[in-house]
Amino acid sequence: MMPLRPLAVVTPRGEEELLRSLAVEGAVPLGGGSDLIPGLSWELASGDALVSLAGVPALRRTDALADGSVCLGAAVTLAEVARHPLILGAYPALADAARAVGSWELRAQGTIGGNVCLATRCRFRNQPPLWRDALQTCYQSGGDVCHAAPASRTCVAILSGDTVPALAALGAQLEIWGHAARRLPIEDFYSGDGAHHISLAKGELLAAIHLPADPPTAAFRKWRARESIDFPEANAAVSAVWREGAWRAPRVFVSAVGPAPVRVVAAEALLDGADWSEDLLRAAGELARKAVHPYDNGQLNVAGRQIAVRGLVARALGDLQNARRERGL
């Protein structure tokens, strides 16, 4: 094993103390740590002080609000998300996505906030230190080259959280704490630059995730090498509202094919109000395939990852149809 460099672990008990701790130079939020700790031991992440979120009660709550929406604290574990009655009842696609993360133990430890903020991954960087020692420093490590895409001016590492497309399809909003609290739709949270992939200023923290009242029907699909443990090589989530005999306002998101989720507007246009035949779903999948441009920095081959997107989207759309039929609509 590769030991961690010296650092301090801080465990604030309240919100103010938390924000004060995070404002210190070198402070890094620590959720479950299942990704951060190995990242630190491989010198992929750095931090002088890890600020644990686990001791702040507000971050660990799952609340049904008066307006019918649900507020998920960032430090709620993925296992809790996957089995919470509120989530299983109204947002089953999110429960599916949470259950698709890692393994049983990783989900018991990893948090929803950690999954949304998860460091991007790249086959040319997420390697032990020795592997990278003789390699030129890449964008994400503060250098000026991308080994996965030499022509790229920015880091193309892969956004690898499974809950991201599901939350995007559901229309979730993120609550950010900092100098001033703010809220934004999750799809606006990702910059597209793999090295600075989330829009959090120094001292800011993802505190909660708001799931809308009356959510659309949604479905999530993941593609990876094995049935467990592995990060996604591509994932997708779709949602739509069944109204007046047709699917309306579809949302189609593909992720784990680049530094940010990809919204497939062309597919949404094709699907909106149309007759969702098998062929149409395939066609929507094909539009999604064309809309993504992965680089060869995942574990599986890049051409395969792109082709897989077609099936993921078509299948997820098929899941919506099945859900509708099950409800007798």
Binding site: S103, N126, Q127, P128, R226, E227, S228, I229, D230, Q299
Partner: peptide, 13 residues
């Protein structure tokens, strides 16, 4: 990938 995410062996699933 000289690690168990880069070199994958079968899981129970």
């Amino acid at each position: 990938g000289p690690h168990l995410l880069g070199y994958r062996i079968p899981t129970i699933l």
